[in-house]
């Protein structure tokens, strides 16, 4: 039981981690909480639904196309909204992202309806491991492998490429980054693109594990923010770690409290972190 919950937690945690990396970088570089992040995740999952189920493309192609389209949407949001508002109070940008979240969610509702959707209807028999102590579905193995691959790709991008290094530098200290001649506008666009890809991946994997609903991403917004704050705003590695911690805690919490209160766990961890160490585990001082 404990082992099973832990495994479920790792699966949920890697999905949260994927979404949180982009949220954290945007937060670090653009200095605002992007409240449409959860709904961007939903959008990515539905884009993949469009390509895979409605248009009958293979899963990998649907995945890539959905990730690109979501990245495009993220860049577009920045272009028409956030870029113009960021000169002002950060609350204005945040409320505008709340607006974007509502618009996206209702567009999904409008085009795909409120009912649950599935990438595949067939029911998978779980593989039984460790003498019946652990059950895992084939899909969940794919989720773990894909999430791990993406995290390694992000790591290589951030540590080996010039753009990745510039992103980290900007997230760390924007003034210093500007002095060293980094093209900040270009870095910002790349940050949105990368966030879009990762967020779409998180949404697709979540839907792959369960199902699609228009509120799937919105329901994960609080865990995403909790992961970002736990790891330290602006720290992509902190966000990965924070995501895992939040995912595992949410699943393991059902040992002690009712499963209905799972979302409250992320909130509690976040508040505790804000009391003890508001800068997060790997972040700078706020």
């Amino acid at each position: 039981m404990v082992l099973q919950l832990f495994l479920n937690g790792v699966i949920l945690g890697s999905i949260i981690a994927l979404g949180a990396i982009g949220l954290s970088l945007i937060y670090g570089i653009l200095k605002f909480g992007h409240f449409a992040h959860g709904d961007l995740m939903t959008l990515g999952a539905y884009f993949a639904f469009l390509f895979k189920v409605q248009l009958g493309l293979p899963f990998w192609l649907a995945f890539v196309l959905a990730a690109l389209l979501t990245a495009g949407t993220a860049i577009l949001l920045n272009l028409i909204l956030y870029r113009h508002l960021k000169k002002r109070d950060s609350v204005i940008v945040m409320i505008s992202s709340v607006g974007a979240a509502l618009i996206i969610r209702n567009l999904v509702l409008l085009f795909w309806g409120p009912q649950n959707q599935f990438y595949e209807k067939a029911i998978q028999m779980p593989i039984v491991l460790a003498g019946g102590l652990l059950r895992i579905k084939e899909n969940q193995i794919i989720i773990l492998v894909l999430a791990l691959t993406l995290v390694i790709a992000v790591h290589l991008f951030l540590s080996k490429t010039k753009m990745g290094k510039a992103m980290r530098a900007m997230s760390d200290n924007i003034d210093l980054a500007q002095i060293t001649g980094i093209n900040t506008e270009k870095v910002i666009i790349w940050t949105w693109a990368m966030s879009g890809v990762l967020t779409a991946a998180a949404g697709i994997l979540l839907a792959f594990d369960t199902h699609l609903t228009p509120v799937m991403g919105w329901n994960l917004l609080l865990p995403l923010f909790a992961a970002v704050i736990l790891g330290g705003i602006g720290s992509p590695y902190g966000a990965m770690f924070g995501g895992l911690v939040i995912g595992i805690s949410q699943e393991m919490s059902t040992l002690i409290i009712s499963a209905a209160y799972k979302p409250a766990v992320a909130f509690t961890i976040m508040i505790l972190m804000l009391i003890i160490r508001p800068s997060g585990l790997m972040g700078k001082k706020v």
Binding site: F32, G33, F35, S90, V91, M94, L221, L222, F225, I229, A260, Y261, P263, A264, A266, F267, M270, I271, L274, P278, V286
Partner: peptide
């Protein structure tokens, strides 16, 4: 949250609204 930056309060208020609903 109130002694921290404004966005923390924002996130916390979303959280508390959700918990109240639960």
């Amino acid at each position: 949250t109130i002694r921290l930056r404004e966005d923390y309060l924002g996130i916390a208020t979303i959280g508390i609204a959700e918990i109240i609903r639960l």
